[in-house]
Amino acid sequence: MIEKLIIGLAVTTVGTLLVYAFRVKQLYVVIPRLFSVSVLTTNGKIAEVRTYNKGRSTEEDVLIALDPSLKYEIVASSDSTCVLESSAIKIPRIPPGDDFSVLLLVEGGDFSRERLSTISSKSTKGKLLNGIESVPPNAGTTLLGVVAFLALMAAPIAGIDYYYKSKKVAAEELTSSRLARLDYLRKEGWKEFDRYSASAFREYYLDGEFPLHQTKVERKGDVVEIQFRVVNKSAAELRLTALSEWPYKADDSRSFEGRNIFDHKVEPQSANNLTIKLFYPKGKKGEATIDFQLSIGTDSLITMKKRVVVGV
Rank of each mutant, 00 (worst) to 15 (best):
Y162N: 13
Y163L: 15
K165V: 08
K165D: 09
K167W: 06
A170T: 10
E173F: 02
L174Q: 05
L174Y: 09
L174R: 14
S176R: 12
S177H: 10
A180M: 00
Y184H: 00
E188V: 00
E188I: 00
W190M: 08
W190V: 10
W190S: 03
R195W: 04
Y196D: 10
Y196C: 10
Y196A: 07
F201V: 05
Y205N: 14
D207F: 03
P211I: 08
L212N: 09
V217Y: 04
R219D: 09
G221D: 07
G221C: 06
V223R: 15
E225C: 09
I226T: 08
Q227R: 11
V231I: 09
V231A: 04
A235R: 07
L238C: 06
T241G: 01
A242G: 04
L243D: 12
S244A: 14
W246D: 15
D251S: 15
S253H: 06
F256V: 02
G258T: 00
H264I: 03
E267P: 04
P268R: 14
N272T: 10
L274T: 03
T275E: 11
I276T: 11
I276E: 13
I276A: 14
L278I: 15
L278N: 13
P281Y: 07
K282F: 01
K285G: 13
G286N: 07
E287T: 08
E287N: 12
A288Y: 03
T289R: 14
